[in-house]
Design a protein around this nucleic acid. Sequence first.
DNA 1: ACCTGAACACCGTTCAAGT
DNA 2: ACCTGAACACCGTTCAAGT
Lengths: 217, 217
Amino acid sequence: MTGRRRWSTEEILDTAAELLRTSDADSFSVRKLAAALGTDSSSLYRHFRNKTELLRAVADRILLTAMDGYRPEGDWKQRVTTLALRLREAFGEQPQLAGVWARFGSGGTGSRLVMEELLQALRTSGLPDEEVPARYHRIVILVAALIASEAGIGTLTSKEYEQGMEQFRVAVLGADPEHFPALSHFARDIRPLGVDRRAAFEEILAAQLAHIEAQMP
Amino acid sequence: MTGRRRWSTEEILDTAAELLRTSDADSFSVRKLAAALGTDSSSLYRHFRNKTELLRAVADRILLTAMDGYRPEGDWKQRVTTLALRLREAFGEQPQLAGVWARFGSGGTGSRLVMEELLQALRTSGLPDEEVPARYHRIVILVAALIASEAGIGTLTSKEYEQGMEQFRVAVLGADPEHFPALSHFARDIRPLGVDRRAAFEEILAAQLAHIEAQMP
DNA sequence: ACCTGAACACCGTTCAAGT
DNA sequence: ACCTGAACACCGTTCAAGT
């Protein structure tokens, strides 16, 4: 309309988040974001050094909204679990950002809120202070890896997903019993990676936390 | 030289694997592969439906070479751990393929060998047969997630990595003690996600396996 | 029967030129 | 001081035309 317009960084991030939520697959691009804002992609480079920097900023907003209204409840294991599930859900709606977060971190207020809550929960666990950082490190690696890999599957188009399922079926059900006896034996009960992710997430995390607890004095 | 030349699928996969090993960052492309083969990218589409299909085939070769010379040793936990570490190492040298594997699977002989060995190990564990598939599923999800996310960090250029480290330092060391007391307290001992990955991998997996063992009759 | 060239519809990023 | 247009150097993929 006006031909010229100054966009605030906030508006850009909002629009980017919106686009990442609605767009299917990996179709987000700087050019599309610019088009949605009604401007040229070149003008966005005044606000962000590059695309990664932009996505990191959006990822940090995801963390912020994930922490919105959060109140710690229960013992340390429940707190860690609730936190992890919140992050999982938040990135589940914006799967492209999960990969950015796991690779680059986000480095803003959102990430600080997450780190703070996780550390506070561990501090109430009875762990000696000097063991907290190492336990923290393992938990973050585990949670980030699970979320990012689940999100990676979430970015597949339904055609890609179906195709992968089909090839999985062929690999499992078509295995020669002579060379792959165990695989043939369990073939009908083996499930592909993409199913039952929420239960898997909770179980794997619970095992990790139980293990930490078991090693306490 | 000859102007015309038929490439076998084998040769294409070999060259692709080579290129993925040596190329830094995400710079692999169909066009570069074609150039390395001395042909045009369009001719590769007779051998593969698309880029993903090509990468899946290379990923399956990685699994094959990872299993090369493998002999089961020790109890079931040692077998699972050895297998997982082999995969981790194989994809560590070709980090771009880890993401493809975790998202799409590979669906060839390599993946069958891995599935077979993992199932056989679980079968010797003393788990009742009907619990094996669920335990198998969790282990694969965990191992694939850890390997892919570690590899994701491995695809960063050293500039990107340094930049991420710097921003991590700022986020942690620059946190206001009033709003982030636990973070400030542990600031100097909190480590970024990318460090100490091998130890983290082994510990997290060990916790998972110990948890399975603890639930046995 | 096989391969090539050229094209299509995109990317991220830069930078001189405009207002 | 800010924005735009145009360009650069790439992508994956398709398909008519060549040999």
